[in-house]
Design a binder for these strands. Structure first.
Lengths: 231, 231
DNA sequence: GCAAAAGTGTTTGGATTACACCCATGC
DNA sequence: GCATGGGTGTAATCCAAACACTTTTGC
């Protein structure tokens, strides 16, 4: 029935690659680590790790995220799986890629046992990476962009309180096109935002109003009316 | 560094589940097989198989498709991976789900070594399935619906020559809502279709014109202008 | 002629676009 | 006062929904 023994199928390992995306200085950035071990020693890579035999995929992704950032309860999104037989030099390792959005300012990502250096790199300037990580990165960034269009995940990257221009610039960077300010503001009218009395400070022009995303209102809208976030 | 030996990670297997979708009698249907072996003997299940240690994931998906239908060169779409440690009773098996569209009339799907019965089941009437296949099926159907909105994959399910009403009914069934005929025809104006002189036959009403999807024109449009299929 | 579905035109209101203009702040 | 972005209004246009109507076939 099979050309090998049944038990010979149970000789593979799994890893989870966990992409972190954040937003700062008008750019969407991905967290990369510099590997401090073979193979691909000293190459930039996507944070990832092997999955324990008794661990669920989501669990492993959360563990890696926790190790790297100290954060838990971050919304994780599964992207794609990659399984070329030769993709890992030390054996058959199929990897499942995940991604999550974080606020870069909220924490200090720390080097962990597998890395001695980390860096936030703009998604439009990704260098050559270890393994097949360039393929994984490119595929995942495409998925991120798709989700930016239909889910309010941008607010997980923006600061808790943000200006409408910051919001706009995020989309301008993601889709690499400039948008008309007035039209952008009309387009987002449907999104439940909370306007604060607080204003921007220390800017040498008219200070902008600060907003936050009204998550609860959003959830209610989704459940009650047939609301679909759209950008 | 790890709480188990490095070699103990290489004790897992992975499988590929390969959902086939087709369209007949106004319904989108999925191909299910009745298992003819333990575990879950006699349960309906998604066709799938273990992946050989030297086989890529896409390759395995193509192999299963070929075994089942005799078809190759079918557009396969990767959906999601499922890895709960207890999802398979015989060991750690992570599964990657794929789906593909086929023309049900074009071939006779045949029972294979793992199944003695197969059936095309409307996606709105899926029974209880083996393993965690209900979860996999539901997730994949959602993805199918998403792709129906932004990629011309419906034409892989429709007959080579179809009427505009058949086309419309496919979307009506998928999204479970009726659509206005006149408006539907305006909405699809942007899709490159080829009108044939041929007409529907053997119908007791005005025969409808037959169309096919102009795949080459579509590709050109995507490459030259910034065209995006949208439904 | 009648039933049934194919196929088309018109009106309306809401969204999208381009563009112009005013406002508040630091220096 | 001026530079810099914040913030808003308007008119033209496109698009989608609702609905009515004509056409072609079998019986």
């Amino acid at each position: 029935m099979y050309r090998i023994n049944f038990s010979d199928f149970f000789t593979s390992a799994f890893s989870v690659d966990c992409m972190l995306f954040g937003y700062s200085q008008g750019q969407i950035k991905a967290l990369l680590i510099k590997r401090a071990m073979e193979p691909y020693n000293n190459f930039w890579a996507i944070p990832g790790d092997l999955v324990y035999p008794d661990e669920d995929l989501d669990e492993a992704a959360n563990r890696i995220l926790k190790d790297l950032t100290g954060l838990s309860d971050v919304g994780l999104h599964q992207a794609q799986s990659f399984g070329h037989p030769k993709r890992h030099p030390q054996g058959r390792v199929v990897t499942v890629s995940y991604f999550a959005m974080v606020r870069i300012e909220d924490f200090n990502a720390k080097a962990s046992s597998w890395a001695d250096e980390i860096s936030w790199v703009p998604i439009h300037d990704i260098p050559v990476l270890a393994f097949d990580h360039n393929l994984i990165m490119a595929t995942t960034i495409e998925l991120l962009k798709q989700k930016l269009r239909v889910e309010p995940i941008c607010f997980d990257m923006l600061p808790d309180r943000f200006t409408l221009s910051e919001f706009q610039q995020l989309y301008e960077y993601a889709f690499n096109q400039s948008l008309d300010k007035a039209n952008f503001r009309k387009k987002i009218k449907h999104i439940p935002l909370l306007a604060h009395d607080e204003k921007q400070k220390m800017v040498k022009h008219r200070p902008a109003k600060l907003f936050s995303f009204a998550k609860e209102d959003y959830k209610t809208k989704v459940e009650t009316i047939d609301y679909q976030f759209k950008m």
